[in-house]
Design a binder for these strands. Structure first.
Lengths: 135, 135
DNA sequence: CTCCAATATGTTATGTTATTACGTACGTTG
DNA sequence: CAACGTACGTAATAACATAACATATTGGAG
């Protein structure tokens, strides 16, 4: 669960999936990754999902639950933060990663005050990035 | 998008779906609602999804994106808040709705500072409710 | 180096969630 | 009643995800 601090050596499939995500401008679904990797020998969804699981475990990518898609982490130290929020632009689909430790502890406190102990949080914001808002 | 302030009159299907959600202790998936309503004449997913869409529009239920499920709103005035966070217990699956306007504006400001204008937010916390934590 | 165990991979099938497309019924309003 | 909007019924299919099982590869322990 906790991302490893070591730089793990990626396997072939993991490398291919990671590369696809890193070079994408937008989050990709598992099946669109699969389509991209047909020429590299990928045939079945499981090949993608297994690689995705490992990459998440390594902290190299994130899953965006609200859109069933995945992004490469652009925020190399995010493993050191408790909370990551994702701002997903509804126009260009680009994702901004936001971390703020104070916000994280506020949210955890708020939950505590409501009788809940947080172990993991999903925060996904929809709206417009400044670039798209101007246009 | 914005929940209506009027109390809308629900249709037959909407009533059945809403009743199922209100009487459930846990969030329900669309397909488990479908199964529950077979005896009431439901035959196809679309009957459920259409009712769910309307109920969400009316502000009577919420969708939990991280678990592809739906809950009746237990927090009647949540339409007046900008942000609702859901705390989902990983043991009993019950959901606590949390609203906090200060937190909402902090989160919006944080996003603004990161070049993003929020229109809608998904905040779903996983962990344990106090009841389950004690046991 | 060899054997073992752990991990990674390949493949088929299936399960789960959600939407498209098309047609019918029904209530409201002019 | 005619025209319109909304709801409903049904079949098909798309999109997302996992189970189950077999084979291959890798990396120590002895």
């Amino acid at each position: 669960m906790t991302p490893s601090t070591e730089a793990p050596k990626l396997t072939k499939n993991q490398t291919l999936v990671y590369r696809a995500l890193k070079s994408a401008e937008e989050p990709l679904s598992a099946y669109s990754i699969l389509d991209q990797l047909r020429d590299d020998g990928f045939r079945a969804p499981l090949q993608v999902y297994r690689a995705l699981d490992k990459l998440i475990e390594f902290g190299l990518i994130h899953r965006l639950e609200s859109i069933n898609s995945f992004v490469a982490c652009r925020h190399p130290d995010c493993g050191t933060h408790e909370m990551v929020a994702f701002a997903i632009c509804e126009s260009c689909n680009r994702v901004i990663e936001i971390t703020d430790d104070a916000m994280a502890s506020n949210l955890a406190s708020l939950a505590r005050a409501n009788g809940f102990s947080v172990s993991r949080s999903t925060i996904e914001l929809r709206g417009l990035c400044d670039t798209c808002r101007v246009h």
